[in-house]
């Protein structure tokens, strides 16, 4: 994924698919996207079934709520990423859902949108993600840190095997968890903001790869697939 887009691509409107069961919220997002000069409404659905049909038509970005009446949005993310790896999935979440957000990132999501975000930020966040940005906040950083450190064995959260993050990535996560912005982190670590963003992107990718490996491992265990070698 590159942030260097040529003019024709940059001029192209980003097609956004909305899958959200709360009709008020769905309409809110529809309005914001329709009004945004660089976004276009690809379609919207209130459940998994309808969403699954729509995502086959290749949206650029899919906004998805995780708790849908007929299933989990996570499966839609996996489906989208397997059919169109270049399309981006963004989780629509309310606050303190870090666990679900990280779960979604592990499933292939590239970012999240908070439901009560200021209206003017929604479009910017979608464009940011589409252009390769990886939104993160202290809560999510904290959650990932906890998951990868494996220190909190006494916590109630399900134990997820830690992905192997580099020392620098952990350092970045620690700074994010302490409330520093990307720009501040870049200046503290003497890096470019772009590098910090890349670190976050790598962290997400590692989580996703790790998650995929786990899925393969589990499938092997259950005898669903056989590896010859």
């Amino acid at each position: 994924m590159s942030t260097l887009l040529n003019d024709s691509e940059a001029d192209k409107l980003i097609a956004v698919l909305i899958i959200e069961d709360d009709s008020m919220m769905r309409r809110h997002f529809e309005r914001v996207i329709a009004e945004h000069p660089r976004l276009t409404l690809f379609g919207s659905a209130g459940d998994c079934k309808a969403g699954l049909k729509l995502l086959q038509k290749r949206p650029d970005v899919m906004l998805v709520d995780l708790g849908l009446p007929d299933g989990n949005g996570m499966s839609l993310i996996r489906e989208l990423k397997s059919v169109y790896p270049s399309s981006e999935a963004i989780v629509v979440s309310i606050f303190t859902e870090e666990e679900k957000v990280v779960g979604a990132i592990r499933a292939g999501a590239s970012g999240y949108l908070l439901k009560d975000m200021p209206t003017e930020d929604i479009g910017a966040s979608i464009i940011d993600v589409f252009q390769g940005g990886s939104p993160i906040n202290p809560s999510i950083a904290r959650y990932i840190l906890r998951a990868v450190s494996g220190r909190r064995e006494d916590s109630d959260e399900e134990k997820q095997p830690a992905a192997e993050l580099s020392a620098r990535e952990i350092e970045v996560l620690n700074l994010i968890a302490r409330g520093y912005s990307r720009r501040e982190i870049a200046s503290i670590l003497a890096l470019s903001t772009h590098t910090v963003v890349t670190h976050v992107r790598h962290i997400y990718e590692k989580l996703e790869v790790h998650s995929r490996n786990e899925a393969v491992f589990e499938a092997c265990q259950q005898g669903l697939i056989t590896i010859h070698g």
Partner: peptide
């Protein structure tokens, strides 16, 4: 309230991070 009560976090740095967020 949720950050402070619901989540079991005692790390001062992280609490400060949540506060800034």
């Amino acid at each position: 309230v949720m950050d402070g009560i619901v989540e079991d976090c005692r790390d001062v740095g992280m609490i400060m991070g949540a506060l800034r967020q």
